[in-house]
């Protein structure tokens, strides 16, 4: 998750104080990892230096530390470009899972047992996410679904690999 661009997006919604930005970030994107205040202000400082945000006029009654940040034209353009751009569809070929299986086969270890254990761990995590989904809000469900689909695709890969393990072992041994 790109923190600067997410903050830009929140400012594109409306000019905000640093405190409000942190609160909204935590509510929607934090997922149990709140953004430290230091990081919020450091990021906002860099964005201001690059001309993507400016500090607006303090409103009457606001304390001196409560600066309002406003997004600039440059910042808005960068945010819009980022929003439109698809994320690179990376196949993640060199995952840890893959490496472990190949290494296990290479070294004559029990790859099937590893895959079964991995499968159980994946499903355990999927059960937790399903529980989050069943008990949480729609926003929680949306994120849980994202995780579930990713875990599911890993699981399918695990199942397929389990089924092909013998052939795979033969192939690895040849090299």
């Amino acid at each position: 998750m790109s923190v600067p661009l997410t903050l830009l997006g929140l400012l594109e919604r409306e000019p905000s104080h640093g405190y409000d930005l942190k609160r909204d970030y935590d509510a929607f994107f934090g997922r149990g990892k709140p953004l430290p205040f230091g990081q919020v202000y450091a990021t906002l400082g860099r964005l201001a230096r690059d001309g993507k945000v400016v500090v607006g006029e303090p409103e009457a009654g606001d304390g001196p530390d409560r600066k309002r940040y406003v997004i600039t034209e440059t910042g808005a353009t960068e945010f819009e470009d980022w929003l439109r751009e698809p994320v690179a569809a990376e196949p993640h070929l060199q995952t840890v899972l893959f490496s472990k299986v190949v290494l296990a086969l290479m070294l004559g270890r029990d790859a099937e047992h590893y895959l079964d254990t991995q499968r159980a761990a994946h499903l355990q995590r999927m059960r937790e996410l399903t529980e989050v989904k069943r008990s949480g809000s729609l926003v929680d469900a949306l994120l849980a679904d994202h995780g579930l689909f990713h875990l599911e695709s890993d699981l399918r890969w695990i199942d397929l690999t389990t089924a092909r393990l013998d052939a795979l072992a033969a192939e690895v041994a040849k090299r």
Binding site: R119, A120, L123, Q124, M126, R127, E131, R156
Partner: peptide
């Protein structure tokens, strides 16, 4: 056969070649 559906369960057993294996404990 869908993991996302199986994730609604407390526990899963896997059947391979007509034999069942239980892989995980209770939630």
């Amino acid at each position: 056969h869908e993991a996302r559906i199986a994730a609604y369960a407390d526990r899963e057993a896997i059947v391979r070649d007509g034999r069942a294996t239980s892989l995980s404990g209770r939630l």
